[in-house]
Simulated assay, not measured.
Amino acid sequence: MDGLSGKKPAVVWLLNISVVVLVALWLFPTLGLFVSSFRTSEQITSSGWWASLFPAEQTLQLRALDPDDNRIETGAGMFVVEGNVLEGDYAEVNIDRWGTSSRAPSAYTIGDTADLGDGESMTLNADGTYIWQGNDDQISGRGQRLFIIATVPPEFTTDNYKNVLFTEGNSEDMAKAFFNTLTVVIPATIIPILIAAFAAYALAWMDFPGRALLIATVVGLLVVPLQLALIPLLQFHNAIGIGKGYLGVWMAHTGFGLPLAIYLLRNYMVGLPRDIIENARVDGATEFQIFTKIILPLSFPALASFAIFQFLWTWNDLLVALVFLIDSSGETTVMTKQIVELLGTRGGDWEILATSAFISIAVPLLVFFMMQKYLVRGLLAGSVK
């Protein structure tokens, strides 16, 4: 009755809310990755991306000037070094508290004089100026290390993109990884479509013994975990000599993608009008002619839908590439593996990771938005008779 009176039933509201929640769950991480790609490593480690538009409190590790070139003797064997720790990139920083040890970075307030022992002292002012005093042995070597808890204004930078795309070494590696990924993705998308299209037509419109068993087998293969087949498949590839190159990874992606491709295309083709196919057979068309001139043009939305799925999966894949593209020289490194290498040996270059990841997803996003209308048509085909 609610539907007749113009009010939406509760299930419609629940569906709309669910869609909004799902979209948000996918949108927020992407937005966070985009924002983080324009932040420095200190900002990423100190606050979340949602706080990037507001001033944030950070702990900065700075050093005073090297005393050997900047100290001034004040008499009685005492020396002093004066300078400003907030010059350059930290000119707009507001100091809250400071310290000389990582264990107590907020031990002193602005203007306090820190007693470093044996007559050595350090005084830090609000504008960043400091006075470091001590004897000849103390005021030597490297500058005194300071830990500053400060309020840092929001800052965005394009240096991360310059580092990844234009820095010598990084740009060459990313360009090589980009073309290597295309070398993997394009054949790994086309080959399953070619095989699955023939198989789907046979399972949908051709009568032969065992057809029902083959359909059940295809449905069963949809739930087989990818990891379960990696080791035996790699052993087979090594036995026939294709386990360390592009051919092996093409065949692996083809095998893992075929069940979904056949299932999706068969469900679409079986919903096509039977009269068209029967009329073509009456007119003397062969099965191959029916397939190429009638079925394939009508099945383009389903073909495009699977192409999107397969492209996105193979582009973002790391596991299959690591297993079947064994190359210590880096000549076949794909984007996902290159991003991991750019993270650094200690795993601390988060700004590089965010930038590289966002560059990597640019191509899948472009493909998705260009072909999303075919994706929707292909997925909904056959749902309404």
Score class of each variant (00 low, 15 high):
199 A>E: 03
199 A>M: 13
199 A>T: 08
200 A>P: 02
200 A>N: 03
200 A>F: 05
200 A>C: 08
201 Y>P: 00
201 Y>V: 00
201 Y>N: 10
201 Y>R: 04
202 A>K: 02
203 L>H: 05
203 L>P: 03
204 A>Q: 01
204 A>E: 03
204 A>L: 09
204 A>M: 02
204 A>W: 03
205 W>K: 12
205 W>M: 04
205 W>Q: 00
205 W>T: 02
206 M>C: 07
207 D>Q: 12
209 P>Q: 15
209 P>T: 11
209 P>M: 13
210 G>V: 06
210 G>N: 10
211 R>D: 10
211 R>N: 08
212 A>V: 02
212 A>Y: 02
212 A>I: 03
213 L>P: 00
213 L>N: 12
215 I>V: 11
215 I>C: 03
216 A>F: 07
219 V>I: 15
219 V>T: 12
220 G>S: 13
220 G>E: 01
220 G>H: 00
221 L>Y: 01
222 L>M: 14
222 L>N: 11
224 V>S: 06
225 P>W: 06
227 Q>I: 10
227 Q>F: 08
227 Q>S: 14
228 L>G: 08
228 L>A: 15
228 L>M: 15
229 A>S: 14
230 L>N: 07
230 L>E: 08
231 I>M: 13
231 I>R: 07
232 P>V: 09
234 L>M: 15
236 F>C: 13
236 F>K: 11
237 H>F: 15
238 N>K: 11
238 N>H: 12
239 A>I: 03
240 I>N: 11
240 I>D: 12
241 G>R: 04
241 G>I: 08
241 G>W: 07
241 G>M: 06
241 G>E: 08
242 I>H: 06
242 I>N: 09
242 I>P: 02
243 G>V: 04
244 K>Y: 10
244 K>L: 11
245 G>Y: 02
247 L>M: 12
248 G>K: 06
248 G>P: 06
249 V>P: 04
249 V>E: 03
250 W>C: 11
250 W>L: 05
250 W>V: 09
251 M>I: 14
251 M>Y: 01
253 H>G: 05
253 H>Y: 11
253 H>L: 08
253 H>E: 04
254 T>L: 12
